[in-house]
Nucleic acid binder design. Sequence first.
DNA 1: ACCAAAAGGTCAAAAATAGTCAATTATGAA
DNA 2: TTCATAATTGACTATTTTTGACCTTTTGGT
Lengths: 161, 161
Amino acid sequence: MSSLTHAIEIYLTELLNESDAPESMLSIRRKELAKTFGCVPSQINYVLRSRFTQEQGYIVESHRGGHGYIKIERIKQDTSENRIEHLEKIVGETISWQDAHRYLSALQKRGLITARERLLIEVALRHCDELGVSLFDLSPHKRETIQAELLKRTLRSIMLA
Amino acid sequence: MSSLTHAIEIYLTELLNESDAPESMLSIRRKELAKTFGCVPSQINYVLRSRFTQEQGYIVESHRGGHGYIKIERIKQDTSENRIEHLEKIVGETISWQDAHRYLSALQKRGLITARERLLIEVALRHCDELGVSLFDLSPHKRETIQAELLKRTLRSIMLA
DNA sequence: ACCAAAAGGTCAAAAATAGTCAATTATGAA
DNA sequence: TTCATAATTGACTATTTTTGACCTTTTGGT
């Protein structure tokens, strides 16, 4: 009926819900979890890869070796969906340096990112752009595509965080 | 339930925090410490090698023979000049993704950057790296050079801010 | 100077975990 | 039915921790 993957997903989200803060955390042993579901350990990796991505509002960390573990943290907030949708629409496929700069200023003014975060993003955008020019001689359009992509990725990541 | 290594790490950082000058120092006997944790002495070396490296902001010195000791000192990083100097030294000309990740974790642990800032930098590094691979088919070495440069630029910018 | 005792260091093996990748199988939509 | 996508599996790889045997340095007595 329901797939193994789905069952494991349910199991993990239940655990996350137990302590009902909007953001919560859990820690497991890959081997044990696999055993309780009677599957191979790498199945757990599949579940994590397909159901607990950052896009879906989770951060997963792990440690190998003795006392290894996998830690899943939920970071999603209710309003983040909306903001991200808005982000996609505003930024679009390409964006000029000036527009990116303006947009970041606006976000900062609204308190959605800090000055340091804005600085980080701007430095990264510039670096990428410089590489595009000096190393590969890309067209302005191509560079603006790359910039837009980087801008969206970085903003998405911290809006979820 | 957590590992021996981790327990010893906690124990030592607690000791370091006790006298909470920005730079603090401590001195131990390897054999004694090993005894209080019920492990072999070389375990202590492992803890030092894996948790108290320069990258993580510590300097470790020791002396053999009668009256031997191990001294752990937290590197002073009170001014932005200090931090940037350390940054240049640690990152160098090239850096692997793994090392960058480790270094950023250490910075976050020390409270020098926030989780969001770390996330931003990691996303930017990845984006750059992906471009390097998929768009230009750069050599791993070249990509590690670009990564190191981006890492240094972003960190410098917020350390000064 | 020499030697023994008292530190600490190194290195490699073994054990305990987790990750990756590609082949295979199941499922669902057109 | 057929094809694309999702799920499952397992062989192989990578990383981290723990342990112990053997090595080096320093000190202090004779």
